[in-house]
């Protein structure tokens, strides 16, 4: 079977405290933008992405926030409940990886 073309983007960091990534699958994301309104820090936007040479509108983390995720995502980070960007997505295109170092 041919592998489905999926473009998975990991935005985040890895350091002494553990690792944290916002993972967006561009092949599932339909660019509806619901997550944009849900983010308390407004770090998500919908933008044109080139998938090979075809253009598609998908959710991305704004370029200027990509190196600040450690601080921007702080309000939603405690893993008690699902972050709003993840729970609002009807296609399950967004997930969060948060593994604190023991």
């Amino acid at each position: 079977m041919r592998r489905r073309t999926c473009i998975i983007t990991y935005y985040g960091y890895m350091d002494g405290s553990g690792e944290y990534y916002i993972v967006i699958d561009s092949s599932i994301c339909d660019g509806c933008g619901l997550c944009v309104g849900q983010c308390p820090k407004k770090i998500i936007e919908t933008a044109k992405a080139m998938i090979d040479i075809e253009e598609k509108i998908v959710a991305t983390v704004k370029e200027e926030h990509r190196k600040n995720i450690k601080y921007e995502c702080l309000p939603c980070k405690p893993d008690k409940e699902t972050p709003p960007c993840v729970s609002v997505c009807k296609n399950n295109a967004i997930r969060i990886i948060w593994k604190a170092k023991a």
Binding site: T5, C6, I8, T9, Y10, Y13, D15, K67
Partner: peptide, 11 residues
């Protein structure tokens, strides 16, 4: 063709 990628760390 890109399948997945990891964006840079914070610094």
């Amino acid at each position: 063709k890109v399948l997945s990628f990891l964006m840079n760390d914070k610094c």
